[in-house]
Amino acid sequence: MRDFVQTFVEKLKVEENRDRVSLVQYSTEPEAHFYLNTYTTKKPIVDSVRSLRHKGGRLLNTGAALQYVKDNIFSPSSGSRRQDGVPQILILFSGGKSNDEYSDTAEVNFKLDTHSTKDEIIDAVKGGRPLNTGEALDYVKNYVFTSTSGSRLVEGIPQILILLSGGKSEDDVLVPSQRLKAAGIVIFTVGVKDADEAEMQSIAHSPNQAFMLREFSDLSPVKQQLLSAVISHKDTVRPGLVQGSSVKRDIVFLLDGSDDVRSKFTAICDFVAKFVESFDVDQGKDQVAVVQYSNTAVMNFNLNTYKTGDDVVKAVRNLRPKGGRPQYTGTALQFLKQWQVTEI
Rank of each mutant, 00 (worst) to 15 (best):
R2A: 04
D3L: 02
T7P: 03
K13Y: 14
K13S: 14
E16R: 09
D19A: 13
D19E: 10
V21Q: 01
S22M: 04
Y26M: 08
Y26F: 15
S27D: 03
F34A: 00
T38W: 00
T38E: 01
T40W: 04
I45Q: 02
V46T: 13
S51P: 15
T62A: 10
A64M: 05
D71V: 06
N72Y: 06
F74N: 07
S77A: 10
S80F: 06
F93N: 00
K97Y: 06
D100T: 03
D104K: 10
T105K: 15
A106P: 06
A106D: 11
V108H: 11
N109W: 11
K111A: 15
D113E: 13
A124E: 06
V125F: 11
G128I: 08
R129I: 07
G134E: 13
D138E: 08
Y139N: 03
N142P: 04
F145I: 02
F145M: 05
S147H: 01
G150M: 00
S151Y: 01
R152H: 04
L153G: 08
E155S: 07
S165Q: 05
S169C: 14
L174F: 15
R179I: 00
L180A: 11
K181C: 06
V190G: 01
A195N: 11
E199L: 07
H205P: 04
S206F: 07
Q209D: 08
F211P: 14
L213G: 08
F216R: 02
L219H: 03
S220I: 03
H233M: 09
K234L: 09
D235H: 14
V237I: 12
V247A: 06
K248R: 10
D250G: 11
I251D: 04
V252T: 04
D256A: 15
R262S: 13
F265M: 12
F271E: 05
V276I: 14
D286Q: 00
D286P: 01
V288I: 11
A289Y: 05
V290M: 13
Y293T: 07
T308V: 07
D310T: 13
D310E: 14
V313D: 00
Y328K: 14
Q340S: 15
E343W: 02
